[in-house]
Design a protein around this nucleic acid. Sequence first.
DNA 1: TTATAATTGAGATAAAATTCACAAAAGCAC
DNA 2: GTGCTTTTGTGAATTTTATCTCAATTATAA
Lengths: 210, 210
Amino acid sequence: MPFSGKISPLTIQRLSLYLRVLKEYAAMGKVAASSGEIAEATVSTAAQVRKDLSYFGSFGKKGQGYNIDELIEAIEGILGLDRRWKVALVGLGKIGQSLIQFKEFGQIGFDFVAIFEKDPEKIGKSFNGIPIYHIDEMPRVCEEETILIALVAVPAESSEEVFQRVLDAGIRGILNLSGRCCFKPPPHAFIKNVNVAAEIESLSYYLTHF
Amino acid sequence: MPFSGKISPLTIQRLSLYLRVLKEYAAMGKVAASSGEIAEATVSTAAQVRKDLSYFGSFGKKGQGYNIDELIEAIEGILGLDRRWKVALVGLGKIGQSLIQFKEFGQIGFDFVAIFEKDPEKIGKSFNGIPIYHIDEMPRVCEEETILIALVAVPAESSEEVFQRVLDAGIRGILNLSGRCCFKPPPHAFIKNVNVAAEIESLSYYLTHF
DNA sequence: TTATAATTGAGATAAAATTCACAAAAGCAC
DNA sequence: GTGCTTTTGTGAATTTTATCTCAATTATAA
């Protein structure tokens, strides 16, 4: 790795945002951007942008800002997006079905290659061109296909069991949409929780008190 | 309000998680829980749980922990969940369709009462029993129905314009699923961004570097 | 060649968030 | 009632994160 030390997860999330706006800029034909511009587009501050980048190296030119193509390449390298990732979907309910059709995953380098389900009705068929396996087959399929990332979209009740099985199948990164928010992963694995219900509850807090 | 001062958004998010596990406990018939138990269930720490709660009052009993029903009621009060909220869905694409069928919103007090769309094909009809209006009708409908919260699930390209129109319609809380991450709301409004693509990118970072 | 303006990178500083640590209850057993 | 155990609430200490500041660098234009 070209860098050392522990980086805050907040920095990582922001890099992802910076990358988005940089790609927008590139698509517009823009060649350079300053930390101030990037900050404004991501609701951040110039100092924050520079500090985040500085953990990984010096990518800008004093007086000139950042070359957009170079910075895109740098951030993609940092985030490990200079490759493609195979992803499994676990749970083909409403949410799973809608996410698997979501084109942005492919655009940013993540390919769904397997779906795992319990419902015998669905197994053996395919959805959106992706084969549906029984969840028992996860260890075999994930190994054969070298799948390291899973998107878990099962009902909250079954999620705890499913997390365990997913980790046992060799998955190291879980994107959890099950609504069951909290599961402590083993040290070699990572979980990101996306919880729309919790987010709307914080909106309620702010509307109530401000 | 029974409290003063600025509370960290991180505290608010965690209260939401605490509430979830407390409701699980209540459903199991449990009557009391300690900060340690709540912490374990939410992947937090006992001190963090106590500190978060302490910003709003004293809800526990020394040596005994927290009465679950009482604490649920307290947190619901804090978060403004001791009432029901009317919610608009803006954008009836795949994501919008799947979210509006998501039962948990109703269970936690949020009712979809209107859908706004641009597509003339859909307007005038209903989806899942909820009427579909043209987006131009938002100001009128939101006022008549006193809708203060909107879930925005439109394509990233149109989101900037849509945010503006949503705010102009009197909406004060936006849950943004458009993928376009960054929009600075005016001081009386609040935006919560949910960005699955950005989350999966951080997973890539961790798998690459650890 | 020299002034001018823009902007980075990073050390110093400030602010925010988390953890520590412990006195003060509260129940229980005897 | 006394001693033991549990667990809260909170001020203090620590750690983490964000902001500020400015010397150094680059391009530009006179």
